[in-house]
Lab assay of single mutants.
Amino acid sequence: RPRTRITDDQLKILRAYFDINNSPSEEQIQEMAEKSGLSQKVIKHWFRNTLFKERQ
């Protein structure tokens, strides 16, 4: 599977949600997927990776 490139606009959407809640529900993930055009799997990975980076 090729690597997914996240655009600046998509990143703004993900960051806005992350700043509010770094552990989103399935409904929130689905909402982000619809708004951003990214798959739910990509969003879950982004949140997991970003949370890991923030904790270091």
Rank of each mutant, 00 (worst) to 15 (best):
R1L: 08
R1W: 00
R1P: 01
R1I: 08
R1S: 04
P2E: 15
P2L: 10
P2W: 00
R3G: 14
R3V: 11
R3P: 08
R3N: 11
R3D: 13
T4H: 12
T4Q: 04
T4D: 14
T4N: 15
T4C: 00
T4F: 13
R5Y: 14
R5M: 15
R5Q: 15
R5N: 15
R5F: 14
R5S: 14
I6T: 04
I6R: 01
I6C: 03
T7C: 03
T7I: 03
T7Q: 02
T7S: 07
T7Y: 02
D8F: 10
D8Y: 04
D8I: 13
D8T: 06
D8E: 15
D8L: 07
D8R: 06
D9L: 10
D9Q: 09
D9T: 15
D9K: 09
D9E: 12
Q10G: 01
Q10S: 06
Q10R: 01
Q10W: 00
L11Y: 15
L11Q: 07
K12D: 05
K12P: 06
K12L: 12
K12N: 12
K12M: 09
K12C: 08
K12Y: 02
I13F: 07
I13E: 06
I13L: 09
L14S: 00
L14C: 01
L14D: 00
L14Q: 00
R15W: 07
R15Q: 13
R15A: 05
R15I: 03
R15C: 02
A16N: 15
A16D: 11
A16Y: 12
A16E: 15
A16Q: 13
Y17F: 13
Y17L: 06
Y17W: 03
Y17T: 10
Y17P: 00
Y17M: 14
Y17G: 09
Y17I: 06
F18M: 10
F18K: 10
D19P: 07
D19C: 09
D19V: 09
D19N: 14
I20S: 10
I20V: 12
I20F: 12
I20C: 08
N21I: 08
N21G: 04
N21K: 05
N21D: 11
N21S: 10
N21Y: 06
N21C: 09
N22G: 12
N22M: 14
N22C: 06
N22Q: 02
S23Y: 13
S23P: 12
S23W: 06
S23G: 05
S23K: 12
P24W: 02
P24Q: 02
P24M: 01
P24Y: 01
P24C: 02
P24N: 01
P24V: 03
P24K: 00
E26L: 11
E26K: 13
E26G: 06
E26A: 11
E26W: 03
E27M: 14
E27N: 15
E27D: 06
E27V: 09
E27K: 10
E27P: 04
E27A: 14
Q28G: 06
Q28N: 03
I29T: 04
I29F: 11
Q30S: 06
Q30H: 09
Q30V: 06
Q30P: 07
Q30R: 10
Q30K: 15
E31P: 03
E31C: 07
E31T: 06
E31S: 09
E31M: 10
E31F: 05
M32G: 01
M32L: 04
M32R: 00
M32Q: 00
M32A: 01
M32W: 01
M32F: 01
A33P: 00
A33C: 15
A33H: 15
A33S: 11
E34L: 10
E34Y: 02
K35W: 01
K35G: 04
K35D: 03
S36D: 00
S36L: 05
S36V: 05
S36R: 01
S36C: 12
S36P: 00
G37T: 09
G37N: 13
G37F: 02
G37A: 06
G37D: 09
G37I: 01
G37E: 09
G37V: 02
G37W: 01
G37L: 12
L38A: 10
L38V: 08
L38F: 00
L38N: 01
L38D: 01
L38T: 04
L38W: 01
L38G: 01
S39R: 12
S39P: 08
S39M: 15
S39D: 01
S39A: 06
Q40C: 08
Q40L: 12
Q40D: 04
Q40A: 07
Q40Y: 06
K41Y: 10
K41S: 07
K41P: 03
K41D: 15
K41R: 09
K41C: 13
V42P: 02
V42I: 10
V42R: 14
I43M: 01
I43Y: 00
I43Q: 00
I43R: 00
I43G: 00
K44Q: 03
K44N: 10
K44F: 11
K44M: 08
K44A: 13
K44L: 05
H45W: 13
H45N: 10
H45G: 11
H45L: 10
H45I: 08
W46A: 03
W46V: 05
W46M: 03
W46S: 02
F47I: 02
F47W: 05
F47A: 03
F47Y: 08
R48W: 05
R48D: 09
N49S: 11
N49G: 08
T50W: 08
T50D: 14
T50Q: 13
T50M: 14
T50I: 07
L51H: 09
L51M: 12
L51I: 04
L51F: 04
F52D: 09
K53I: 15
K53D: 10
K53W: 07
K53H: 13
K53T: 10
E54G: 06
E54W: 05
E54T: 05
E54N: 06
E54Q: 05
R55P: 08
R55L: 09
R55E: 10
R55C: 13
R55G: 11
R55V: 05
Q56R: 11
Q56E: 00
Q56K: 15
